[in-house]
């Protein structure tokens, strides 16, 4: 009788562990998970337009609670996150990149760099983002590097102390059509690898 009770007790413990850990894994709540992810992909940028709203499913709501708490609903802002360059390699502090894009379909937009803990990396460069006020109209580009570029008047996002990092694109007050046809409306910025300080392999 006691043996049978212990068997059932162990079954409950195993079930609770399996269910809890699987939920955390699927919702991105494990310590090793970091990206906001999403169902929409634009040129390597991932987003989900249910972010911040009650329409988000339970998995995505839990993921955003950890990785993007206090995100706005899509009528106000849409978010995309990218963790790889144009060749699909992980973005790395040891490498330099050129991010290029054009005008964005929003009243205001920005691209911000975050470390693997979802925070701004610990440096004092005051160059952790690039936004519409600096891009002006039309085509623009910015260098992503751990050291400020030598060239004058070069837009720069500092990756110093960022390690393995990602970028978040925010479109505030998105134009009509962004939510219904993001592929056709948004020209998501490209991230081209320029060089690496050390062998990436």
């Amino acid at each position: 009788m006691a043996k049978r009770a212990i068997t059932y007790l162990l079954s409950v413990i195993a079930g609770v562990a399996i269910g809890g850990i699987s939920a955390m894994a699927m919702a991105g709540l494990l310590p090793t998970d970091r990206r906001t992810g999403g169902d929409i992909e634009l040129n390597g940028w991932f987003g989900d337009f249910t972010m911040g709203s009650a329409d988000a499913d339970a998995y995505f709501r839990a993921r955003i609670a950890k990785h993007g708490l206090l995100a706005l609903a899509n009528s106000e802002t849409v978010y995309f996150t990218r963790a790889t360059d144009d060749d699909g390699n992980a973005l790395d502090e040891a490498c330099n990149y050129r991010m290029s894009g054009g005008s964005m379909p929003a009243r205001w937009w920005s691209v911000t760099l975050y470390n693997s803990d979802n925070f701004l990396p610990d440096n004092t460069d005051q160059a952790l983002s690039f936004d519409a006020t600096r891009a002006g109209d039309g085509e623009w580009s910015a260098i992503i590097a751990s050291m400020k570029p030598d060239e004058e008047n070069t837009n720069w996002i500092s990756s110093k102390s960022a390690g393995d990092f990602d970028l978040t694109l925010r479109l505030y007050v998105p134009n009509d059509g962004v939510l219904t046809d993001p592929d056709g409306i948004i020209q998501a910025p490209s991230i081209k690898l320029l060089n690496c300080v050390e062998d990436r392999s």
């Binding site: 079954s11 409950v12 413990i13 195993a14 079930g15 609770v16 562990a17 399996i18 269910g19 809890g20 699987s22 939920a23 955390m24 919702a27 709540l29 339970a58 998995y59 839990a62």
Partner: peptide, 11 residues
């Protein structure tokens, strides 16, 4: 049953 319950509870 315990796995399903804890999965939903965590979410």
């Amino acid at each position: 049953i315990a796995a399903i319950a804890s999965h939903l509870l965590v979410l």
